[in-house]
Design a protein around this nucleic acid. Sequence first.
RNA 1: GGCCUUGUGGUCAAGCGGUUAAGACGGAGCCCUCUCAAGGCUCAAUCCCGGGUUCGAUUCCCGGCAAGGUCACCA
Length: 546
Amino acid sequence: MDLKKLASRLIPDENLPSLEDCEKAYPPRKLKEGAEVTRLAPSPTGFIHLGNLYSALADERTAHTTGGVFYLRIEDTDEKRKVEGAVESVIRSLKYFGVNFDEGAEIDGENAYGPYYQRRRAPIYRAFAKDLIERGLAYPCFCTEEELDETRRIQTEKKEVTGYYGEYAKCRNLTEEQIYAALDSGKPFVIRLKSQGDVNVKHTFRDAIKGSITVTENNQDVVILKSDGIPTYHFAHAIDDHFMRTTLVIRGEEWLSSLPIHIELFKVLSFELPRYGHTCSLMKVDNGTKRKLSKRKDPELSLDFYRAAGYYPQAVIRYLMTILNSNFEEWAAKNPTADYKQFPFSVSKMGKSGALFDLDKLNDVSRDELSKLSPEEMFAFLKGWADEFGTEKDRAHFENADYIIKILALIMGAGAKKKRKDIVRAEQGVRLMDYFFDDTFAPEYSYRADNETVNKMLEGFAALYDENDDNSAWFAKLKQAAAGAGFAAENAEYKLNPEAYKGNVSDAAEIVRIAVTGSPNSPDLCTVMGILGKERSIARLNSAKR
RNA sequence: GGCCUUGUGGUCAAGCGGUUAAGACGGAGCCCUCUCAAGGCUCAAUCCCGGGUUCGAUUCCCGGCAAGGUCACCA
């Protein structure tokens, strides 16, 4: 059979680049020894979630801690699943979390290895497919979807491996006449790899994350060019990662099972195989079982969700870092002020089994991270959130920067010997301040004492309160009022004879606290009242009487 | 079902033939204390199972089991 002629018939494109041209156009990168080139290669199918950020961070850290390059490639070979604006959304979301690309789709700067949209690279793929056909390593397949379904059914029935291989590869040995007849009749076709592999042969393979794994040779005649002439993932992956000079392909472990295909593809294309690192996926518990995070099933894991909830970007990143490299936490404890980018990230330190997403842990990391901010920085962060996601009232409150910063100094324990870690995320932090504003102050007045006692305490303290008192003077007056209302002024006295009193000082303070803040829990009450000012404090004490 | 991967407290995990089996989150308790946080201290809780190899296995080997992934003209 004249393969040259067949190739020209199958791929008649003019102006295809020559294989040598491609090599020349995308030469090996000039990087220092050990520098890794990594990439994020999403398909533009919609929003990205925490799991995507997780692997993007692994890529980004690997590239940037080794002095390499991190680029963005868009795998848009599936027209049907394309979503408008998805690319911008990916870039924007990742940027919010501080994950930035050096080159790639929609990125300014060095674009020498582009284009980064696979659809725009069609001529390259087609040139190589044509070459494979000429070399007898690929062939046209005219099987219809129905035929394929049918063989799959038979294979399943006979408990054989499904797929297009061996005797099931019907089009593999078509005669010249059959091929041209099909072509002449206008039947649509795909191009398949003529696999040379043998499933009985196994190799051990070194994965950068999983370590030593065994791979079985591929014997599937996989589709490399779909009937629309666009490559499948497998083929595009081999060609792109070769010509974009990726050194380390970091991707989810769901790709592990197609690794044999990729190995064969690199081999027949005569490309040097890059290194691979297959990450375990982030899991979540669903109906009592673990499963990997999914875009469709877990909208609450969308990156935009975390933005809306007001999670601090650095906190999410640091949480992810603790899962990515388990020694990160230890390092961070030793270097409390260091930026996470100084951490010597290593793919080899990545875990081998899938981690469960742990909200408690994220919250803990968040508290910690946020407690490092100054009240001014916290103000800026909260205001940014309020501007985008807050209520009308929130935005109005944030006009008064000085007032809020004073509140934040209290809530965060700034300047005090011990910092507070009350704020986990912006939304919750903003709500924490509600009682400092009259229009959001919503007390419940759920006193434990009887009304008479409450009123006596409130009146007594209102009469004594002086906004110029320092903390101890303030507390002395609280005790005085407490005694007047029948509480024990000193705890020791109360312990000796609890029957004689309405309660201890804590119980008395609780009444005032509820009156002023609407809640039995709050930071230092003396300071709260100082921030509110005498007038409002007294007004609240009065209106809190029963 | 075939193939691949993984299996240390509730969660994330150190560990790499001999350890009282780290640490963090979460839980319980105590201290501190005007409450709540924070902080300090203490406690409970783990090597999937069965065979080997070995003086000795969480660690090495084999076999189970369980979980996850994958078997498309989707990526």
